[in-house]
Every structure is written in structure tokens, then in C-alpha cells.
């Protein structure tokens, strides 16, 4: 951690962990109808941080649900600047993290994108197609602006690679739970617990598993090892299917109860 003081995102997740609580981070596609209210509903239902997706035309790490949400948001006129200014108005009391693809940041310019995240009150950023080796121009701008760059760690990485990723990650380490893109799965992949365990052995940063976590039971199973979970497609699908912010709120509450129950039992 090169002695840096933890940012807001890392601090919030560490605090939850210290209290014996498993971290819950729902993902909502920005610009989708009802997204702002959905973010607020997720916060009220017990999220520890919330990811806001800035849609990109070519989301290669996303499955059909998040793709469709992004397409709808773009068709409705979503823009990076528009979403960030809307995020400024959200009063949720938990850290917000933007998730998008590198070209959005590259096109706006690293410094400008980092500053506009910070100015909008966004604590962290995840760029799904920006691996460690290519990340320096972005991370230096993000560090400077006080934006925590969360890095992904996948089952395909060697131990040495996981160490390098953990050394550069800020906020939390995003453990990719399976080989594949985002989307709901019938069962938790065995790889989810394995990658979380490998990461927990080498880092003290919060380790959250994402990709393929879609039910309370899967979230509970993953957090037998991981510090928390990221839940995306299962949240977004509820918005796509018209369940609205209330549907998101009650689903997040259900996840919250499952995670809390698992801790106290």
C-alpha cells in the first residue's frame, strides 16, 4: 500500500469487515430508467458501496443482461458527463464506484475523467478492460484526484500476478468468480471460493467476489471466504423487467439478510 492512507471506499469496507459484517456491493447501470432511485433504494436496503455502470458501446466483459441495460441507457441518451452530474445529486451515505470501459476515460482524458469523478463525489473506479500493465497513465491521474482504482483479479492469474495486482489495487480487490462474462448463473462456480481464498492469503485489502453471484445463497457461499460480493446482472435484470427501484430495494434487502444471517449463525 506504499503507506498511503486508505481512501473512503477502502475505509468503508474495512470498517464493515471490522464490525463482522460481509460487504454487499450492488451494481446498477447508469442511465437505465429509474437508476437513480434504484441506487438510493440499494443504499437504504443495506449496500456498503454501490457500483454505477457508465455504458459503453462495446462491453466485452458483460453478458446479455448488462449489455441490454447499456444499450437501453445509451439509446435513452446517457452520457458519461450526464451520469456523473446526476450522481452528484445522490445522497446515499455509502461510497459510489464507477464501472466502465477504458475508452470512456481515455477519450475524456485521464486527468479530466479522474477530476470529474472526484468532483461528482465518486470514490472509486473500475475499468473492465484496463489490466495492470496498461494502467499507469490512468492510476496516476486517479491517485492524484483521490479516486481509488479497483483492480480485477481472475482465476487465470499466477500467484505472482495476483500479488502484483493486490499491490496496485485500491479500495478493494475484485475477485472474478469464474471464467466468463457477467451474468446470472444457476450455481456458484467452484472457482469463486478458490480465487477469493488465494487473494485472502496475500492481501489485507477487502476481497469481494463478483461475476456470477446472483442469489442470496450464492452470496452467502462466496462470503464463507471472501469479505463480500458484487451483484450486478441480478440487480439490473429487475430494473429491465420493470420491477423498478422497489424491486431492487427488496432484492438488496434479501441479500443483506442472508449475509447478516450467515455471519451471526
Amino acid at each position: 500500500m506504499s503507506g498511503a492512507r486508505p481512501g473512503r471506499l477502502e475505509a468503508a469496507l474495512r470498517a464493515a469487515r471490522t464490525r463482522g459484517r460481509k460487504c454487499l456491493v450492488p451494481y446498477v447501470t447508469g442511465g437505465l430508467e429509474g437508476w437513480e432511485a434504484a441506487v438510493e433504494a440499494a443504499a437504504a436496503a443495506g449496500a456498503d458501496a454501490i457500483e454505477i455502470g457508465i455504458p459503453f458501446s462495446d462491453p466485452v466483459m458483460d453478458g446479455p443482461t448488462v449489455q441490454e441495460a447499456g444499450d437501453r441507457a445509451l439509446a435513452a441518451g446517457a452520457t458519461p458527463a450526464g451520469l456523473l452530474s446526476a450522481a452528484t445529486g445522490l445522497d446515499v451515505g455509502v461510497p459510489l464506484v464507477v464501472m466502465t470501459y477504458y475508452n470512456i476515460a481515455h477519450h475524456m482524458g485521464h486527468e479530466r475523467f479522474a477530476r470529474s469523478l472526484a468532483d461528482s463525489g465518486i470514490a472509486g473506479a473500475i475499468l473492465a478492460d484496463l489490466p495492470l500493465e496498461e494502467s499507469a497513465p490512468w492510476t496516476s491521474a486517479a491517485d492524484e484526484a483521490g479516486v481509488e482504482t479497483v483492480l480485477l483479479a481472475a482465476p487465470t492469474a499466477s500467484g505472482e500476478r495476483l500479488e502484483a495486482i493486490c499491490a496496485r489495487a485500491r479500495g478493494f480487490v475484485y475477485a472474478v468468480g469464474l471464467l466468463g462474462v457477467t451474468g446470472e448463473r444457476a450455481a456458484l462456480a467452484a472457482s469463486a471460493v478458490v480465487i477469493a481464498g488465494r487473494l485472502k492469503e496475500i492481501t489485507d485489502l477487502p476481497v469481494l467476489v463478483g461475476v456470477g453471484i446472483s442469489t442470496p445463497a450464492q452470496a452467502t457461499e462466496a462470503t464463507t471466504v471472501a469479505d463480500g460480493v458484487v451483484v450486478g446482472s441480478a440487480v439490473v435484470r429487475r430494473l429491465l423487467e420493470g420491477e423498478g427501484p422497489e424491486g431492487v430495494g427488496s432484492f438488496v434487502a434479501e441479500l443483506r439478510r442472508a449475509l447478516d444471517g450467515a455471519v451471526s449463525s
Binding site: V60, D129, P131, L152, A157
Partner: peptide, 12 residues
Amino acid sequence: GGCYVPETLVPA
């Protein structure tokens, strides 16, 4: 140029 891919693909 470069190698801008999801982390899963970097080792490949």
C-alpha cells in the same frame, strides 16, 4: 497498440 483486455485474458 498495447494489450487492453479483461484481466482474465491477460495471461492467455
